[in-house]
Every structure is written in structure tokens, then in C-alpha cells.
């Protein structure tokens, strides 16, 4: 059964365990590939992860003159192939979310590959495995459908289906506000 990374941004507690765990994926050379932002640090403690959304038609791959960024059959947009990447950094500029990182020493781009070693066999990626707050989850489409029913947002829009800058993405995101439509128990 296909599973996807699903983000519920309201839950994030800023622990950055996702970043620590990212370094632990066997294929990641102990470098983390995503980001956690303090949304407004002088005001409150809101944080949110910024993860690769694994676009269906990814700008990073489109922008790559060397076809170094491959898309796995699962939809994961992989890190640049070492032998093909020419270090031009087009991808880092093309990505509207600023996801690809650049290793200046090795002259190589690297990015989230959705822990392809794990996810190709249905094992959750490291970030979603450890995330203590369930901001990052690894769900079936059916489970995501249920989330959609559970969280009835005020504006009637289910945010994960909103067209992104880059159109449909494999990762589904639920923006802050999930609690707005909840009916209280008492």
C-alpha cells in the first residue's frame, strides 16, 4: 500500500528531532537535509518544519542541465547523482521552497530523498518515524482521506489539495489551523 509523508504543521514543537534523525538515515552521510523554522522567534515559540514536498513535476529536476536529479518510481525526488551533478546550483535556485542544499567542498547538490532506502520497502522515513508531536506522519491515502474528513477547516478548503507553486506534490501538507473546526467534547 502506498504511503506518503503527511505534515500537520500545527503540531510542531520545534524539537528538531526530524533534523537529528535525518542524519541517521544510512544514505545521508550524517548531514540533515531539511529545515525547521522559528516562525516568529521574538514573539512566540511557533516553529514549523520545511521538508521537500517531492513535487510531481519538480522544478529542481527540470532545472538541472545534467539530468542529475532522478525521480524514483515511488515519486521521491532523489538527491543528485554524484557522477552527473556538475555543481551548477540551478536546482537550489529553481526550487520555490529552497530545499536542495549545496556542499561547496564536494561541489555537489544534496537533498531529501525521502529515505529511499527505507521508503522503497514501505518503512517510514527517519523524520516521520521519530517526530514526537506527529507533525510528520507516514500515512496511506486512505488515512489522509480520513484526516481530511476529521479536520473541517473554516474556509472550507482542505489545504493539502491546494495548488502549490509547483502544482501537485507527493507530500501532503496541512497548514496551521487544524483545530479551528473541531467540535469540543463538552
Amino acid at each position: 500500500m502506498k504511503k506518503r509523508l503527511y505534515l500537520e504543521l500545527e503540531n510542531c514543537i520545534g524539537c528538531r528531532s526530524c533534523l537529528a534523525a535525518c542524519t541517521q538515515c544510512g544514505g545521508h552521510e550524517e548531514r540533515n537535509r531539511n529545515y525547521v523554522y522559528d516562525v516568529n522567534p521574538l514573539v512566540n515559540r511557533q516553529t514549523m518544519p520545511l521538508m521537500c514536498l517531492h513535487c510531481e513535476n519538480p522544478a529542481c529536476a527540470r532545472s538541472c542541465p545534467a539530468q542529475a536529479i532522478q525521480i524514483h518510481e515511488s515519486g521521491a525526488v532523489l538527491s543528485a547523482l554524484v557522477e552527473k551533478c556538475i555543481g551548477c546550483q540551478n536546482c537550489t535556485i529553481a526550487c520555490p521552497y529552497g530545499i536542495p542544499k549545496f556542499d561547496t567542498e564536494q561541489n555537489l547538490m544534496y537533498k531529501c530523498d525521502l529515505c529511499i532506502d527505507r521508503t522503497k520497502d514501505g518503512i517510514p522515513p527517519m523524520c516521520a518515524s521519530v517526530c514526537p508531536s506527529n507533525t510528520l506522519q507516514w500515512l496511506t491515502d486512505e488515512e489522509i482521506e480520513n484526516k481530511k474528513k476529521q479536520f473541517n477547516l473554516d474556509n472550507g478548503k482542505w489545504v493539502t489539495s491546494m495548488p502549490y507553486l509547483e502544482g501537485e506534490t507527493n507530500v501532503k501538507v496541512n497548514l496551521p489551523g487544524i483545530l479551528q473546526g473541531i467540535t469540543k467534547l463538552y
Binding site: C15, R16, S17, L19, Q24, P124, S129, V130, C131, P132
Partner: peptide, 8 residues
């Protein structure tokens, strides 16, 4: 399976 960054 969950852990904080200290645990990881």
C-alpha cells in the same frame, strides 16, 4: 518509534 533529538 518516536524520539527527541537527545534520544536520536
Amino acid at each position: 518509534g518516536k524520539m527527541c533529538p537527545k534520544g536520536v
